[in-house]
């Protein structure tokens, strides 16, 4: 439909750096919390991260093993489908490339699975090649539980629901299948620059 001009609407939050704020988003300096249920509780001694390939467990790291993997420190912009974007967020964690090194598979898709039952689906090509991490540090501090600690997936080039909190592993599969929000009407891919919020966008 054609846009309706809103009389006397000026807009107070025009982005200072328009090229960094996707359409329909506004910049915030807060770090908001969004989740569908209570923050899950898991003791670090019970935590592990698993890579499951077509039903078979290929890799497993306990917390201390995960912490011993080679780490990357990086700064990215993040974009939440609820309209906020936050620029220059600082993270530290392990590249998905490191976690999948040596895994043999014809899989084209990944499902991230999490404490609390949350899942999200992604093309494998979107989490490899230096595009995604399992992070356990935000702003130089351990990742807080309400933000997904002890560790969350971070896929900054897609809407932030793809960056699953409390992540416990990746399932690689040949077939794509919708995750939690994707099955509830949100977009299957979620590119903020193409404003892929809902399934028919």
């Amino acid at each position: 439909m054609t846009g309706i001009i809103s009389r006397r609407f000026g807009g107070k939050r025009r982005p200072a750096e328009p090229g960094r704020i996707p359409p329909g988003q506004y910049e915030t300096r807060d770090f908001q919390v969004l989740s569908a249920g209570p923050t899950p509780r898991v003791a670090l001694e019970d935590w592990d991260f698993r890579v499951v390939v077509e039903g078979c467990e290929e890799r497993r790291w306990a917390w201390e093993e995960f912490c011993a993997l080679s780490r990357e420190h990086f700064v990215r912009d993040i974009h939440c489908v609820t309209k906020w974007s936050k620029l220059d967020t600082e993270w530290e964690g392990v590249s998905i490339d490191t976690l999948l090194a040596g895994v043999q598979s014809e899989a084209k898709y990944a499902i991230a699975f999490c404490d609390g039952g949350y899942t999200t689906n992604l093309p494998l090509a979107d989490i490899t090649g230096g595009k995604a991490w399992i992070v356990d540090s935000y702003g130089g501090q351990p990742l807080a539980p309400e933000h997904g600690g002890p560790a969350r997936l971070l896929v900054p080039h897609l809407y932030f629901w793809k960056s699953a909190k409390w992540v416990r592993g990746l399932r690689l599969a040949k077939e794509d299948a919708p995750g939690f929000w994707e099955a509830l009407g949100y977009h299957n891919y979620g590119d903020p620059w193409r404003e892929q919020r809902y399934w028919n966008d």
């Binding site: 908001q32 923050t39 906020w84």
Partner: peptide, 23 residues
């Protein structure tokens, strides 16, 4: 939601929606 879980409520029956400070 933490208090409900502490009181013994099933986390899978606690649904949350949050309004952030600049929501």
């Amino acid at each position: 939601s933490n208090a409900l879980v502490d009181l013994g409520h099933d986390p899978e029956r606690v649904k949350t929606e949050r309004f952030g400070p600049s929501g």
